[in-house]
């Protein structure tokens, strides 16, 4: 049912965990089945320097989070936000049709984390005065 790539990312997910002093945190729930994904990011300048994720979900959801974190790491915020959902599934050599919604979740959680970072940054100058 799943490609070898999916099984590899599922069995040995890259970047699992959380970041103590994360610059941004994104959390999305999967309304369809009640599952959940969180992304923690570290940012330096306009680049992602570290990404950690945690996922409560199916094989596809775990593999997708791992793949997204891998693809985005080291990229600029703009480039990371622009990673197309389709690209994630493609990089995993495809996902079963009924699992495509899980691939959207990964990109969404990362985008949320970046948004959260930007919100934090906007608040900061005021606080540091």
């Amino acid at each position: 049912m799943y490609s070898e790539k999916v099984m590899d990312h599922f069995s040995n997910p890259r970047n699992v965990g959380t970041i103590e002093d994360a610059d941004g945190i994104g959390e999305v729930g999967n309304a369809t089945c009640g599952d959940m994904m969180t992304f923690n990011i570290k940012v330096d300048g306009d680049r992602l320097t570290d990404i950690k994720f945690k996922t409560f979900g199916c094989v596809a959801a775990i593999a997708v989070s791992s793949m997204v974190s891998d693809m985005a790491n080291g990229k600029t915020l703009d480039a990371a936000t622009a990673i197309p959902k389709k690209k994630v599934a493609e990089s995993l050599d495809g996902l079963p049709k009924e699992k495509m919604h899980c691939s959207n979740l990964g990109a969404q959680a990362l985008a949320e984390a970046i948004k959260n970072y930007e919100e934090n940054r906007l608040e900061k100058p005021a606080g540091s005065q």
């Binding site: 089945c33 979900g57 199916c58 775990i62």
Partner: peptide
């Protein structure tokens, strides 16, 4: 944790079982 991922992880050790998880059903329903 979620049942489908548990079933796949067990099957890597040659163990076969079942789950009623929503993610494992075609309709994504519990």
């Amino acid at each position: 944790i979620e049942g489908e991922s548990l079933i796949f992880m067990l099957s890597q050790g040659g163990i076969y079982a079942n789950t009623g998880s929503a993610c494992a059903s075609k309709a994504l329903k519990t």
